[in-house]
Write a protein that binds this DNA or RNA. Structure first.
Lengths: 200, 200
DNA sequence: TCGTCAATGTTGCCAATGGAAACATGCGAG
DNA sequence: CTCGCATGTTTCCATTGGCAACATTGACGA
């Protein structure tokens, strides 16, 4: 061992391991799917030992929960951005629903991770807060389009949310095949969604 | 080793291992959740070695796919039974939607397994057929309530399906907390669903 | 200045898992 | 009767998450 190691030697301390781990996890999630989100694989990606994440996240669940929190933040911003330039409250609600499905299609792995309670720890403050913020975006979009008393409001939010969420989940789980027919792919799915939104 | 083993000795060949494995998997799924569906655990439950399932199902995915196929069969029957004694086509559609969520609440693990493509092999004939049958039940319920041309029909089926499925998924993933409030539990969820169905 | 300590990483270990390979058993067709 | 093939078992391996013990580094106070 040289007293003064060559300049390309990895420093013992990474410096920004926490961020690097999250970034690696996100990249891996996008490219190889949720099943590839292994503690060891993520650590390998950043050149760290497989127990290094333990210092920043308690365990795999912790790491995934922080990643999901990031996802919910981005999700909320995406919904807001889509509704921003719409003229009416009703148009904003529809745009929000479209954006909901768009996000799921653009980030399928992340979306499934976010809405799959099993691998997450929802008591983590970062995750809880991010989820609450995203929920508020949805809730306000519905409230603006359909002002009503508390009970009907709950039902209207649940209805809009269920529709967007169900469509996204069925899409990601490849269940809509018989309904898309030859209109497969993301474009066909969004076209079907537009037809749905135009029904009432 | 005695030449004639005592009567309580396990025979080398189980006789109905395939059925026993599926039954054990279903029981385990209901009691301990999808994560407990381990090849080794299921085999242990029936007193077989952990490679025995390989002779009946190719691998864990195969076993889970057959289990999911059973689930879809039961699911289709449940939907049909719920709609059977309804007077109008519209009432039958609503009853089908209610039954959809009822099934998810009654068999959460099975439902999630059925609609989680990752752990299943949808090319298995048993699974493909069962999924198609369940889909037809849904499709016909919508068609009877809203006769229309092919394109609108697709949209109507997708809409009804998305609503029921999204509501069920959000419920199973504990996302509807803010909407259920003190009306938690299965009863509260079904009450919220009834309010939703009464909106249009 | 220097010594101590907390934060950050690493190595080594463990039990559990899915799967492959080689082998054992026994039913049933010829 | 016997031999082939379906059905099971044993053994082995790589991978995984997590724990414990140890190493490195920088910061802070006597």
């Amino acid at each position: 061992m040289a007293v003064s190691p060559p300049s390309d030697a990895k420093p013992y301390h990474h410096g920004a391991l926490r961020h690097a781990l999250l970034a690696a996890a996100e990249a891996r999630l996008a490219q190889a799917g949720p099943d590839s989100l292994t503690l060891r694989a993520i650590a390998r990606d950043v050149g760290a030992s497989h127990t290094a994440p333990r210092n920043h996240f308690d365990d795999l669940t912790g790491l995934l929960s922080e990643l999901a929190a990031m996802g919910f933040e981005r999700f909320a911003r995406h919904l807001l951005a889509a509704a921003a330039d719409q003229p009416t409250a009703m148009a904003r609600l529809n745009a929000t629903g479209r954006a909901y499905v768009e996000f799921a299609l653009a980030h399928p792995g992340l979306f499934q991770l976010m809405f799959r309670g099993e691998r997450l720890d929802v008591t983590r403050p970062a995750l809880r807060d991010a989820m609450a913020r995203a929920y508020l975006v949805l809730q306000e979009a519905v409230a603006a389009a359909h002002p009503s008393d508390a009970e009907e409001m709950s039902a209207r939010v649940a209805r809009a949310w269920s529709m967007a969420h169900g469509f996204a989940m069925l899409l990601l789980d490849d269940q809509l095949g018989p309904l898309l027919g030859d209109q497969a792919g993301a474009a066909g799915a969004m076209r079907l969604l537009d037809t749905i939104l135009a029904i009432d």
